[in-house]
Write a protein that binds this DNA or RNA. Structure first.
Length: 495
RNA sequence: GGCUCCAUCGUCUAAUGGUUAGGACGCCAGGUUUUCAUCCUGGUAAUCGGGGUUCGAUUCCCCGUGGGGCUGCCA
């Protein structure tokens, strides 16, 4: 039994829709929390007011909820489960813009200790410094001018200054990353970065440390891009005299070009995938396998199974390319395991017509036909439009190998007669039996190919028996089929 | 440029100081079949390079090369 409750946080900034990288980070945090019966906390890092996008927080919260990555503590948006918000008073609020007083109090501590200092340098002076550094090919570092020459206007209450972190010029910082192992950096390579902006708001590097400490975070699980700033965070923890949490940096999610996945790559918003008809379970399963692997050959994992299997030690170090083909495969797997009723509901918004006008039975048949062929829900529309709308096609398509037009016509006519004699609710097997009996030793294609084309108008489609079965569940199904066969006969006559 | 991280099929990855380097996705071929999909069978394809250590290295070490991240009053 651990003597300390595991507490992790997912800390996105509300600058847009949750993207797949964020989803993976959230998932890993969630898994680790649940694995250890600890708490998963959502914290909104909204200290950059310029980049904030209205509604982004709501989107993040709604998306996490959709994926069942329920947080135990987080921003209070009204409909949260209060019972699970234990400790909220103790640790919250969970939105940084509501914690400004906390940051103010703590920056003063740093100022008093000399671990931070006010800087009155103008942007022009900083630019000049950077230009010089560039010209002489040395890395830019703020020269601590304001530390050495405190400005006489200090304390005037004006906010035309920033507060910088006073990083020692000698020595090294090091930490043990749970994934990457020991990382050691020399202090002289670290810049005296800004902690408090001239508008009085903290930057990430500062707020992050203060919050992680006050929220009693035990494991900081975040993307690898933060490794470089971790040494600065350590200096801050040490300046405050606070214990340092464990760091767990996750390998980056990469685009096809092997660059950090970003909005520029398009298709990174989780919402986009959901809209296209990827199932949350599939997305989660897929993303779980990016940078992590249970070391067995099993690939399909429910959220509960992921919790059971998850282990920090199994996280990889190399970046992982996001492969849409593999996502499609995962999604197809999950689609197949849905019940017919579930699938009908899932597919409803993607049908080409108002599905409410059609009997449930008919929709169920269609969904059964498509379940093995679907990669994502959004495909259902174009795949099944012929069920709802009379298909347009070239009569040439009716031709089968070297069967003559007369042969095709007579087989279509025969098919039409057979269908007209079918009783409603006839099964696919029965339909097939009837046809096979009728065809006998003759070539099946001569009968079945033109029939299938007549009904679907497609070069490639499900088999005619399945299509007929579906139509037979429609009150006017027989009429529709008869009409389509007549149309095909007309087309054949014109060839 | 500086700091730092990484390196097994195209992609996600497994494995070991000794294996025919395994699986999955994709792709290709064959089978089933009225077309498509499914399904079945088979196939293609990888240890970045060079040095060490060792009886033996893909695995451990070093150097190189390549790639990524950071280098913001973004997170």
């Amino acid at each position: 039994m651990s003597n300390k409750q595991t507490r992790v946080r997912f800390a996105p900034s509300p600058t847009g829709f949750l993207h797949v990288g964020g989803l993976r980070t959230a998932l890993f945090n969630f898994l680790w929390a649940k694995k250890n019966k600890g708490d998963f906390i959502l914290r909104i890092e909204d200290t950059d007011r310029a980049r904030e996008i209205a509604g982004a927080t709501e989107n993040i919260v709604a998306t996490l909820k959709h994926f069942k990555l329920d947080f135990d503590e987080g921003p209070n948006l009204g409909d949260r489960n209060q019972e699970s918000g234990v400790g909220k008073d103790k640790y919250g609020p969970f939105v940084q813009s509501q914690r400004l007083d906390i940051y103010n109090k703590h920056i003063q501590i740093l100022l008093d200790k000399g671990a931070a200092y006010k800087c009155y340098c103008t942007a022009e002076r900083i630019d000049e410094l950077k230009k010089q550094a560039d010209a002489s090919k040395v890395p830019f570092k703020y020269d601590k001018f304001c530390l050495k020459n405190p400005d006489p206007s200090a304390g005037s209450g004006s906010h035309n200054f920033v507060i910088r972190q006073n990083i020692p010029e000698q020595g090294t910082v090091e930490f043990e990353d749970e994934v990457y192992g020991r990382i050691r950096v020399e202090n002289r390579t670290l810049d005296d970065g800004v902690l408090i902006k001239s508008d009085g708001w903290p930057v990430y590097n500062f707020a992050n440390v203060v919050d992680d400490h006050h929220m009693a975070i035990t494991h900081v699980i975040r993307g690898e891009e933060f490794i470089a700033s971790t040494p600065k965070h350590i200096h801050l923890y040490e300046a405050f005299g606070w214990p340092v949490p464990k760091f767990v940096h996750l390998p980056l999610l990469l685009s096809r070009e092997r660059k950090k996945l970003s909005k520029r790559d398009g298709d990174v918003a989780v919402k986009e995938y959901l809209d296209k008809g990827y199932l949350p379970e599939a997305l989660l399963n897929f993303v779980a396998f990016l940078g992590w692997n249970p070391k067995t050959e099993k690939e399909i994992f429910s959220l509960d199974e992921l919790i059971a299997e998850f282990d920090l030690k199994k996280i990889n170090r190399a970046g992982a390319v996001f492969d849409p083909d593999k996502l499609d495969w995962f999604n197809a797997q999950y689609l197949r395991n849905k019940t017919t009723a579930e699938l009908v509901e899932l597919v409803r918004p993607y049908l080409p017509v108002a599905a409410g006008e059609y009997p449930q039975e008919f929709l169920a048949k269609i969904v059964e036909i498509e379940r093995e062929r679907l990669k994502k829900l959004s495909e259902i529309g174009e795949r099944t439009s012929y069920f709802f709308i009379e298909p347009q096609y070239d009569g040439e398509l009716l031709k089968w190998k070297n069967a003559s037009a007369d042969e095709l016509k007579s087989s279509l006519t025969a098919a039409k007669t057979m269908i007209s004699n079918f009783k409603s609710l006839i099964s696919e097997t029965e339909i097939e039996d009837n046809f096979l009996k009728r065809i006998g030793d003759a070539d099946k294609g001569t009968m079945l190919w033109p029939l299938r084309v007549a009904l679907s108008g497609l070069k490639a489609s499900p088999g005619p028996f399945e299509i007929i079965e579906a139509f037979m569940s429609l009150p006017k199904g027989k009429e529709i089929m008869a009409k389509r066969i007549d149309l095909a006969l007309e087309k054949l006559a014109k060839l």
